[in-house]
Design a protein around this nucleic acid. Structure first.
Length: 199
DNA sequence: CCACGGATTGGCT
DNA sequence: GCCAATCCGTGGA
């Protein structure tokens, strides 16, 4: 029987948490509906030294959840139309989080398809693109501003514990879509997984 | 296959 | 006013 990850899992080093999140099951519950997916790609953001982190210049209304300590969900709105979800890590005040970049869809696939494409039967290409991007995950899993700050120790959104992946399965690479601190190899993904957004 | 541009709004300078 | 931790469609090689 798999158990939900506890607060202490998240309160550790952001890179450790990022790598250990790979392969674990992300779960979103809405009343009697459920969405689940295996985490296959993440990015670490560290406001203490990383200019691309939303928390780099200190606390604001938008990023305050990043400073509330590990075990919360930080959801932000961007490009006028997209939401992205992060797992807050470290101690309160740290301003560190892990962006969920891609998951492999497991349960609730028909509902995810409706959320993303407004139809149930997807082409191979549409299925491959269902949840292989940070904003795609939020659209498929129905995550919006209302979910900003949700406690991952609760029942609405949480992650199941599974064994750590062997380090030989984890690739570290430059992050995607940022203009600052571009060379830091803080994107982590599962080697050869077809749902990773980019090699 | 790759490169480019439009969509569309809130946050911050 | 500028521009973003994105996505998707288009057009050309």
């Amino acid at each position: 029987m798999n158990k939900k990850l506890s607060k202490n899992f998240y309160k550790r080093n952001v890179h450790l948490v990022a790598k250990e999140l790979l392969g674990k099951i992300f779960i979103r519950r809405i009343k009697n509906r459920i969405f689940t997916g295996r985490i296959v790609e993440v990015e670490a953001y560290d406001g203490s030294i990383d200019e691309s982190a939303h928390s780099f210049k200190g606390k604001t209304k938008r990023n305050e959840v990043m400073f509330k300590g590990g075990g919360l969900l930080y959801v932000y709105f961007t490009y006028g139309m997209h939401f992205c979800a992060n797992i807050v890590t470290g101690k309160a005040g740290a301003g560190k989080a892990v962006l969920l970049r891609a998951v492999e869809p497991l349960e609730g696939i028909e509902e995810m398809a409706l959320n993303r494409y407004k139809k149930k039967n997807l082409t191979q290409k549409e299925f491959a693109n269902l949840t292989n991007g940070p904003a795609k995950i939020c659209a498929a899993f129905e995550i919006q501003s209302k979910q900003n700050g949700v406690d991952l120790a609760g029942d609405e959104i949480f992650i199941l514990n599974l064994p750590k992946l062997d380090s030989s399965k984890i690739i570290a690479a430059a992050r995607i879509g940022i203009k600052k601190s571009v060379d830091l190899p803080w994107r982590y993904y599962i080697k050869d997984n077809p749902f990773v957004s980019k090699k």
